[in-house]
Amino acid sequence: MFQRGYVLRVAILIVFSMVLGCSKSVRYGDSKGIETVSIEFGSTDLQKIAEEMTRSMLVSQLVVTGNRPLMTVQDVKNLTSEYIDTRAITDSIRTELARSGVVRFVVDEEAMAQQVSELERQQDGEYYNQEVIAERGKMLGAAYRLEGSIRSIVKQNSDVKDVYYKVNLQVWEIQTGILEWSDETDIRKIRD
């Protein structure tokens, strides 16, 4: 026959170990590391696409001429069956190109409403010095537009899931409609 105190101590120990077993620790990881938590589109895929495409454009005839062309960004169409924040792809590409200094970006469609709103605020407001306000009709239009798409092929059986992503980006000259640059990259992920 066990003593009551002994049983209580054992019970507390069991509860304590259960609590410890259930708790999960939090730690910081390498934001540039290879992420293989799941087979879905992830940070490694985003970084690979953005980096490869940017570096490819850097050595293209479009930018090596040194003219620093004016460009606008349109969305990368998500033609896969999963949710992908494709704006993150174009944002990363735009940031890296802007940092390299070889391309200049003008306001894109998404930011146009904010741009116009700010212009009107300066024009119509009585609080601004009218000699130094931004004038209407001075914005520059882009000479090129960047667009693209991401597609996927998914194959699956009871043991294996295979996902193949293909990303294609293009730069079109707006005035002439000429395709000035295009490149593609692919990613294959297998879960078994």
Binding site: D30, K32, G33, I34, T44, Q47, K48, E51, R99
Partner: peptide, 9 residues
């Protein structure tokens, strides 16, 4: 130069 590149496979 710049930030660290991403690891690629």
């Amino acid at each position: 130069l710049g930030r660290d590149e991403a690891w690629k496979t």
